[in-house]
Design a protein around this nucleic acid. Structure first.
Lengths: 218, 218
DNA sequence: AAGTAAAATTAGGCTAATCTAATTTAATTT
DNA sequence: AAATTAAATTAGATTAGCCTAATTTTACTT
């Protein structure tokens, strides 16, 4: 089995590859892992030895198929546990991340699959992030950032790109929840402030910073 | 926070103190931890430094109040997770130990207390072991080994002292389940084989080995 | 009480994962 | 293309947990 540390590296590399492209840099990984660059070089050598990543000196690195499989498994664990914490135990969506970071490392195929069944095979976690199925298949999202919409556009709020409690609490206070239908009433030219019509009810004004962290599906 | 290793040492020391008396020997601990004696000496020095145990060179050691609190917390986690695995996820009672050994190390007071509530504040795990409450209070068991009963005695099957899958499966096959009322019909003089009357139904014969691992409450 | 056996500790090493400081390699600027 | 800057790697240490081999301490036996 892999150590927690290895698993966290794999997860981090996976996410970097998703957002920043195929090949990952030592410094980028060091930053997200909260360690210094030489630690990353070190760790990558070990992981390359285990065929979890392909690594070329000073050229960056990427996950092997094997590494990708492990990474997706961890993400599956993480997101299913988040659903459990919110749906079954009554945690708020801004409280679950740290606990799920621990639970994601529990090693048992049987457990995660039974948990999946218990939760009713959810397709997304409480933040709208898609949950890989038991085969590691992760549906590609069709959502876009709210900040790419123009006045008159409509959509459904499907997820966030910022998972910080601060941001999530701010959304709660603004009365914006996952699944809400949103219509863009207008976009302020000067500072790109968005005026939104929520679910035929409230009208809400959000900053660009917020619009740029909200995912919507047309 | 404490490392998993430390927590496992604490748990092991706690259990040894429970069964073998106040003071624990290096060799005994090494045996249950599956390590060699010098590793124990090493670890104990570190843990003594953290005031988790009181340690006197070559004299044995025992848990401090602080150490005891941590140990009981881990046991609480373990047993609550076992209830979850069996009651909610449908695991069998012989399957849950290894998974609970991992889950017991999740660090979150909030989580364990919410889990407790979700499970309905169970008093015992699927093997009948009592669950400490949120304050670390563990009800003292009033059960005795079936092997201490005589012909004619009655009781309720409340727990096991052997948690091995082999033993638990054997009980399943014999049709003996937690909570069953049991009456001792007779005890064979020659080999201490017990003939039991179960719940007004079946009659079952069990070996001394089995009777010596079953707990009953008069 | 002396001698042996058993238990515990010390000494010295190993690995995973980290660090700082120094060096090398790659990229960018002029 | 040379010089400078930035990124990555190597070198050498550190800590937690573990090991084996050697030594010391305690317990047991006669």
């Amino acid at each position: 089995m892999h150590s927690f540390t290895e698993e966290n590296y794999l997860k981090a590399i996976y996410k970097l590859q998703e957002t920043n492209g195929e090949v990952v840099a030592t410094s980028a990984l060091a930053q997200v892992m909260g360690v210094h660059a030489p630690s990353v070089t070190d760790m990558l050598k070990r992981m390359a030895g285990k065929k979890l990543v392909t690594y070329q000196k000073s050229k960056g690195f990427k996950l092997s198929e094997k590494g990708k499989k492990v990474a997706v498994g961890i993400i599956r664990n993480h997101r299913l546990w988040e659903v459990f914490l919110v749906d079954k135990l009554g945690f708020r969506w801004d409280e679950v991340h740290d606990i799920a970071e621990q639970l994601e490392h529990i090693h048992s195929e049987d457990l995660v699959n039974k948990l999946d069944a218990f939760l009713g095979y959810p397709k997304a976690d409480p933040h709208g992030d898609p949950i890989p199925d038991a085969n590691g298949v992760l549906p590609k999202s069709k959502s876009v950032l709210l900040s790419t919409l123009k006045a008159g556009d409509e959509g459904t709020f499907t997820g966030v790109t910022d998972h910080s409690p601060a941001f999530l609490n701010h959304l709660d206070k603004s009365g914006i929840s996952l699944g809400n239908s949103i219509k863009v009433k207008g976009v302020e030219e000067y500072d790109q402030t968005y005026t939104l019509q929520l679910k035929g009810k409230k009208e809400v004004v959000v900053s660009f910073k917020v619009a740029n962290s909200l995912l919507v599906r047309g």
